[in-house]
Amino acid sequence: MQKPIDNRAWFLVAPVFCLVAFNAMLPLMTVVNYSVQDTFGNNQFFWNGVQWYAELLNPGSEFGGRFYAALGRSFAFSGVILAIEVPLGLMVALSMPKRGAKLAICLILMALPLLLPWNVVGIIWQLYARDNIGLFGWTVNAVGIPFNYTNSAIASWVVVVLMDVWHWTSLIALLCYAGLRSIPDAYYQAAKIDGASRWLVFLRIEFPKLQRVLTIGILLRFMDSFMIYTEPFVVTGGGPGNYTTFLSIDLVKIALGQFDLGKAGAMSIVYTLITLSLCWIFYTAITTRDNQEIAQ
């Protein structure tokens, strides 16, 4: 078959090109633009090269130290919530009823937190965890454990982590549940015939079959928690001190609090690159593993 070659066909891509240009490329370029300039106010900008980046990536500088600290907190936060939400979601999924009214009730209750707007979740926990009027905070204090998230680093972390677990464990649980339901009965029957224990059924059948959904769940939760802003902003505002100042919160402080557009621009770009490269590594790791299996 002969394929006609006509470069005018490129025009067919024009609508998508325009769309992407306006909603992604142009906004991104303004950020790039700021990140290489400095200003003394009065809307007068001058070229600053890669100075902002150099300062950002130098842990010795004030700006760099601040950046690395926030980055560390973000990673720590993602790590902690993944370490809790993934096993917990898996356990919830394994113990969910298989059918009937109980299942429907379960699904509705679990879907509820997922449907709430982020700032509402923040407000709920802001109130719920208060030591004076919040049921949770008040109870913990009443038991004899001092708990005040406005002045204790540990308490503030407990609240933001609990809040995220409450908000998002359902997502992992629902994904895992869907994965579990897709395992044919024959696997369980075969395992029965082979005399496998419940633990071996999990280890040899369920867990391997869930790897794909778990990977997706982890990816989603990692990205989301790494970029979390609204809930901790509403609950702690990044405090006490800087204890819950994650990257996104710090970025907003710099951009809107201090109006350091150059620093904020550089930080945005680096933040985006970190996110993108982590996604890419994750994605490549999955696909190469799958390909290796197929090749085998």
Partner: peptide
């Protein structure tokens, strides 16, 4: 129960332990 009977079964869709 199944595991206590001396039978084995081969199913319509192949069941193997993937990993």
């Amino acid at each position: 129960p199944t595991e206590a009977r001396n039978i084995a079964q081969v199913f319509q869709f192949p069941v193997v332990y993937d990993t």
